[in-house]
């Protein structure tokens, strides 16, 4: 997506959908390609502005250093949290085994 000159195509949308673990039908790919392209076109309008001499913005709020003291506060009740999980064993969340290691 760093290549600003190339228009977004259906393969890009398939790639992004795969990364987001979304299973899309072909007609959805076509529709989302159009929609995403119009979003990117809008962003391109911003990119066409002359921003010479204007510092990049890291955050829309004019704030920095929002910090909290390193002090322990109460955690959630374990049983209550685990009751909301689909599957539990030994006080832990039980999930299907994922092949391979964490990235």
């Amino acid at each position: 997506m760093s290549d600003n000159t190339r228009p977004l195509n259906e393969d890009d949308v398939r790639h992004v959908a795969k990364l987001a673990r979304l299973q899309l039908k072909d007609e959805e790919i076509i529709r989302f390609t159009e929609q995403l392209r119009s979003v990117l076109d809008h962003a391109a309008d911003v990119a066409s502005l002359d921003l010479e001499g204007i510092a990049p913005t890291a955050h829309p709020l004019e704030l920095s250093n929002v910090l909290r003291a390193d002090e322990v506060t109460a955690s959630s009740d374990r049983d209550e949290v685990l009751r909301a999980a689909p599957s539990v064993a030994d006080h832990r969340f039980r999930v299907p085994r994922i092949v391979g290691e964490a990235p």
């Binding site: 030994d90 969340f93 039980r94 299907p96």
Partner: peptide, 8 residues
């Protein structure tokens, strides 16, 4: 079944 247990 193979499964994983997660402690957060």
């Amino acid at each position: 079944s193979d499964e994983s247990l997660v402690d957060y």
